[in-house]
Nucleic acid binder design. Structure first.
Lengths: 197, 197
DNA sequence: GTCTATACTGGGATAGAC
DNA sequence: GTCTATCCCAGTATAGAC
């Protein structure tokens, strides 16, 4: 497996081609031949860069997780993070949307059709756990938050944002427009956290 | 395609076997040979009852949709339906959980791996639309509901209950215990609908 | 009506030439 | 390092015997 220069570039080309092919044809019909063709190389060459089809897919999933983590980390570190709860919730909902809006069909394939190895599941899980813990500390520091169990609330909120982003953004056809979705999400989650009426 | 007596029984046996096989092995590895074996017949016989593998799967999906609709309809028709909003939300959350709790892995396969024909997608969609409309009329009749757009709220609530049930009940391993999940769901949705603090 | 044995196909992966 | 041609297998579906 080459590690530098032109080789890395070819590797990227394959990954980008694979993203387009999986998005267009799904996992099953996203064949290695098609990917190679889309990348402008032959199957034989493709197999010089990846040991098998699944390795390509794993790399795409890993990249998605990594992007998500970077996006969230940037928000947490932001010194301009709004002070009020609703504003903060909005920031994270918008981050979740941003992480899925560009290639929704690819994400659908990655999360709903592709086979996930135990290792990859563990990686996703670890990312979620870090996010939940970070969310928990944000909630703990906010006096307007009124819930009985911070950990449960953080778990529920993080899961809700992710699941509903998939439901309303990734899956087609759209049932709600993006701005409407964000508004309802922010309203629901912040009302939940502040204890309701 | 036989329509009576022992034939129908065999048909049911195949469907039940298929449910177990898909739940255990997923869509791809849930082969027709395995299904036949599990049903105690041969592949040849299986193909006398179903034209192809996907027809079996479609039948399972259709049954799930049908069960869901029956469950919801029963709740709507129930004269003992609680009068207060929170009580009503709880009833429907519990119905959604009940419709997924028995064979979670099968549902995961049905909704995340199996290929859905346009017709089947349309059927699911129609069911959802009927549910949204019914929910909308319930919300309209309730004075404690304070939302700007009833249709949007109904769409959002129905989608939320379904998506989060999948997220927290169907997918493994469980991140929250079932009772905790129901409590948080009821709290979040009813606070959302009553307009929050 | 049910079986066994097999034909057929798609697609992942590799051999070997250049 | 890249190509083409091909191997090979898994799995759907069918033929034909009983």
């Amino acid at each position: 497996m080459p590690k530098q220069g032109r080789s890395l570039e070819t590797r990227s080309r394959i990954l980008e081609a694979a993203a387009r092919v999986f998005a267009a044809h799904g996992y099953g019909k996203g064949t290695t031949n098609r990917i190679a063709e889309e990348a402008g190389i032959s199957v034989g060459s493709l197999y010089q860069y990846f040991p098998n089809k699944d390795a390509i897919l794993v790399e795409l999933s890993r990249a998605h997780i990594h992007d998500g983590e970077a996006l969230i980390a940037a928000r947490f570190a932001d010194t301009d993070l709004p002070a009020d709860l609703e504003g903060r919730v909005r920031v994270f909902v918008e981050a979740a949307v941003a992480n899925h809006i560009d290639m929704p069909r690819l994400h659908a394939v990655l999360f709903e059709q592709a086979p996930w190895s135990p290792e990859l599941v563990a990686e996703l899980r670890a990312f979620e756990d870090r996010t939940i813990t970070a969310a928990e500390s944000l909630l703990a520091a906010d006096p307007s938050v009124r819930v009985t169990d911070l950990r449960v609330a953080a778990t529920f909120v993080v899961g809700t944002i992710e699941a509903l982003t998939h439901r309303f953004i990734v899956s087609e056809p759209a049932r709600l427009a993006v701005p409407a979705f964000v508004e309802e999400m922010v309203a629901m989650v912040s009302r939940y956290l502040t204890g309701g009426a």
